[in-house]
């Protein structure tokens, strides 16, 4: 009885889903699906030459690069993008001293709600404060950047690719060498938007934020200042934002190696222990 009812139910679901399949197949066969420029010409994030120091299981922070990235963030990004989950005290990871961090915090005005007056007052930041919110009045809604490299697929490379990806639409060709303007002659970037193949829909509200020479890098320990090209600044800020998204990343990887090494050791021991326990009773299996 159960089997009869079951068979009827099974055939019922099968019938309905195959009906849906038939309708879907008919639609697919009769209706042309419009190809979309947003799919055909979307570019996947790619790594800069040499990748990032933090990449891979043996990755390490490059403190000098993080400091440069912080500088780029402050000078190019901070006007529109907040960094709300990062506290000034966290900058110690980048190699800044307590005094430098205190000065850094004081350069920001932090809003405080005063319950006795009901007003929001601003005062100089303390190392314990987080980066303040940024008010933005304009087109689009600039996201907070603290977690941006975790909130996008292949985030570090995405930030780098996006920042270096402001190309001329007229000459842009995808990986297959097809020209966007030839394949989709009617494709247009919306009012106030900017062409960028790494952004969803190929158009982004943010204008190209970096120009060559926009920041002046301090000289490093070798006595040379890296040239502030768009590529260099993009790499640096992408590295910095990788750190803001997961400041504990290196702690994680370092701990991981110890744990994996120990677990491997214990597992090998467990394997020999298992063999030794079973040696008395384990015959050669003749079937399967």
């Amino acid at each position: 009885m159960i089997r009869l009812v079951g068979m009827l139910i099974g055939l019922g679901f099968t019938f309905v889903v195959l009906l849906a399949f038939g309708v879907g197949a008919y639609t697919a066969a009769t209706e042309e699906v419009e190809p979309q420029a947003g799919y055909a010409f979307h570019a996947e994030p790619h790594a800069p030459e040499g990748g990032f120091a933090s990449d891979g299981p043996f990755g390490r922070w490059d403190q000098a690069q993080l400091q440069r990235g912080y500088q780029v963030y402050k000078e190019a990004c901070a006007a529109c993008h907040s960094l709300g989950y990062v506290a000034f005290r966290n900058l110690a990871d980048l190699g800044y001293s307590d005094a430098q961090i205190k000065a850094e915090a004081e350069s920001y005005q932090i809003p405080h709600y005063d319950p006795s007056t009901g007003e929001v007052t601003r005062s100089a930041g303390l190392p314990t404060d987080n980066f303040p919110p940024v008010a933005y009045a304009g087109l689009g809604s600039p996201p907070d950047l603290s977690l941006i490299t975790k909130a996008r697929g292949d985030g570090t490379n995405y930030v780098y690719s996006l920042l270096t990806g402001y190309e001329d639409m007229a000459t842009y060709a995808n990986e297959d060498g097809e020209l966007l303007t030839e394949e989709f002659p009617e494709f247009q970037v919306g009012e106030g938007l900017h062409f960028n193949p790494y952004f969803e829909g190929l158009a982004i509200a943010m204008p190209a934020p970096l120009q060559d020479g926009q920041v002046t890098y301090a000289v490093d320990e070798n006595g040379v200042a890296p040239e502030a090209t768009v590529d260099q600044m993009s790499q640096d800020v992408a590295a910095f934002l990788t750190w803001t998204a997961e400041p504990k990343m290196m702690e994680r990887k370092r701990t991981g190696w110890w744990i994996l090494a120990f677990t491997l050791f214990a597992t090998i021991l467990a394997w020999f222990a298992k063999k030794s326990v079973w040696s008395a009773v384990k015959p050669k299996r003749e079937d399967d």
Partner: peptide, 14 residues
């Protein structure tokens, strides 16, 4: 997925 769903129910119930 429609074909797979059809097979899923057929497998267990038929």
């Amino acid at each position: 997925s429609q074909i797979a769903t059809a097979y899923y129910f057929l497998h267990f119930l038929v």
